[in-house]
Write a protein that binds this DNA or RNA. Structure first.
Lengths: 386, 386
DNA sequence: GCGCTTTCAGAAAGCGCTTTCTGGTAAGGT
DNA sequence: ACCTTACCAGAAAGCGCTTTCTGAAAGCGC
């Protein structure tokens, strides 16, 4: 029911005497003495194009054309319209415009897990910059990692007739969810909507900015092996996230190339706390400790670093630690974290560019691969006793 | 907004046969079995309420009412409409809705300097959470600190008929700018728009979430004096930002209470680099070094910390360092930064709540003061040689 | 059974724009 | 002078909804 959404407010439709709202009184009084009936209209109506046209002494159509410049309008008329618009402080009603013109409106939707997370904040920042350049407005949605919310947002964005929808962050490897998402996206695309994603699984048939998670993790593994490590653990995230799966697989591959088997994988939430907890678990577990730990995201790595410090484990002397993403903070912690660097802001710019570019041919989707660069910093070193 | 419109479910819904195509199928070629009549409509047109009404065999008005629940509709009709909407995959056109109904639409605008900055990301995160709870969509804009862009965004948000506009971060103390901003905001408010701000100057006549910058900085100063420091420097930001002015003034006050005069203020950009550069300048300058440095924001403090480290200045042994805001990262650096903690996420929730709450009486604006708590961490200690 | 009030579906009037379509006028051709 | 073209302003038809307003049908007391 709609009820939950609108709540009890559904009732009031008549503003009745309330028309003379406190704020409106002094400000609207200066108007001409209007017929009482006319008064019933919106309290503080917006300036409409109609008013501008009247003020300028031209027709509605001419006013529209003068302001939008779609067709030639005589210079003097154009001037009059512009002046009138300025005088009245006219601001076009974007909804009316969107409704009347076939032209898509100027908003794009951006759906991420959480803007508070530096990874998404970085990408979002890139999107914002690119959007600003093209005079686009961005509707940002944080799903807080609830799959259902993500779909609900796509739906809302569809309702807004957003020009493009950007999905940032792993999709969920869940059959039902994928189907539902697809059911939401397909009609959108068919109706001319653009969709582009960052970090989705490649099976999605949409334009994609795809970090080379697998290759990146593999080459990180190689670098760590080169430092002398043989005994690894991974602090992993929710396995249903494709990013996690890819990075884990890549890391395993990289180790396997040197004949090394990954001993231990500890799973945690995709957050700082998740990393912290996972690291604690790792330390608590008996047996020989690994000499090197790879957290699948920097955010988790930061949490893990804190946990290690608290436990008195020196990094990198006692244990090396590496992350993935290269969010800004990893350069500030001590020791600074070794990681696989992804150009976050740039990825944001790319994904919106991808979405806005002329559509790829029938059913074809473009994939922009982003290479991750291994950056060795202070958090990794030779294994203890070597 | 479709979910609320159709029913209680926020859960992914599986629509009729129109959406059952698996991922593998060619997107563009698929023919959905539709009624011939339905077919004659525009090729990729959206499903309209009209189509739903026809499918359900009721009038447009009834369909609207059935979906929105504004008026009682016979149960069987309501059911038919719901079914038809589901079958057709109907999604209301938010623009048409906004145009037709006096009810404001369900979007709010959020204007900040840069989502990439943890301070704003934190607040934005809070806003997002609150917005999600109320089924609101957030239009996020980053001004990248260009005053003109900020005004342009307000204008765009006005055009969108956003229900509320949230301004996060200092305004500019610039006469012309203030005037322009006011000219933009006043008609918006008069037309029923809501405005709420975080960290603006109190002279703005809008609902405000106001961190106690002055008091916070003063009590930080007191704490630092208590540690034994007598010789201070401040790494300050652009003086036209009210936040900077307040924190600086507060800090001075705090020192003055103990009869101490602030020796040096180095100005830098409001960024990590700004803090870094400012710190370098401070160190490069001749004369006795201060024993304690206060950076007006944590972001700058983090940059300063890096600069100090690079210069071989030990913190806090050689020099103490403090910031303001308590962004998440300051807990991760070493030493963790002393700062004045602000509940960022909460402030985000508050500011949107403030904006959405029933308007305050004629011209009155509410101010929600947020106290900052001094948190002493490892970056501050006794002055050297004491 | 007759007027009364309710209840609720449908017709229709917009909401504020864009965009045909129409038609008047000035310019150009013969 | 007469007829084309161009050019451009205005009238009007929507865009997809919500919300009156209107009236038919049903309920009810006497």
């Amino acid at each position: 029911m709609t009820a939950p959404a609108h709540g009890q407010e559904v009732v009031p439709k008549f503003r009745g005497p309330a028309t003379t709202a406190p704020l409106g009184v002094e400000l609207s009084e200066r108007e001409t003495p209007v017929h009482p009936e006319t008064r019933r209209r919106a309290p503080a109506a917006h300036v409409t194009l109609d008013a501008v046209a009247r003020e300028a002494g031209v027709s509605l159509a001419t006013a529209s054309r003068a302001l939008n410049g779609t067709t030639r309008v005589r210079d003097d008329l154009r001037g009059r319209v512009r002046a009138a618009a300025d005088l009245l402080g006219y601001i076009p009603n974007a909804h009316a415009q969107a409704l009347a013109s076939a032209e898509g409106n100027r908003t794009v939707g951006l759906i991420c897990h959480d803007v508070g997370d530096p990874y998404f904040a970085g990408i979002a920042s890139g999107v914002m910059r690119a959007a600003a350049e093209q005079d686009l407005l961005v509707m940002l949605a944080s799903t807080f990692r609830e799959p259902a919310r993500e779909i609900a947002y796509v739906s809302m964005l569809r309702a807004q007739r957003a020009r493009a929808i950007l999905l940032i962050g792993s999709g969920f490897q869940d059959r039902a969810w994928e189907r539902a998402m697809d059911a939401e996206l397909e009609p959108y695309v068919r109706a001319g909507g653009r969709v582009a994603v960052v970090s989705r699984h490649r099976s999605m048939r949409v334009d994609t900015v795809q970090p080379e998670n697998r290759a990146g993790a593999a080459s990180l593994a190689a670098s760590l092996v080169e430092l002398g490590h043989r005994d690894f653990a991974v602090l992993s995230g929710p396995p249903e996230l494709t990013t996690v799966a890819d990075r884990l697989a890549g890391f395993r591959e990289g180790l396997a190339a040197s004949g090394i088997t990954l001993r231990r994988v500890v799973r945690g939430a995709f957050t700082r706390e998740g990393g912290h907890t996972a690291a604690c678990q790792l330390l608590a577990a008996g047996g020989a400790r690994p000499t090197c730990v790879f957290a699948v995201t920097d955010v988790m790595a930061v949490g893990a670093l804190a946990a290690l410090r608290e436990a008195g484990v020196r990094v990198p002397e006692d244990m090396s630690l590496a992350g993935f993403d290269d969010i800004p903070v990893v350069r500030e912690v001590s020791p600074p974290l070794t990681t696989v660097a992804l150009p976050l802001t740039e990825m944001g710019e790319q994904v919106i560019a991808l979405a806005l570019r002329t559509p790829s041919g029938a059913g074809r989707s473009r994939v922009l691969r982003i290479e991750g660069n291994v950056v060795l910093r202070g958090s990794t070193g030779a294994p203890p006793g070597s």
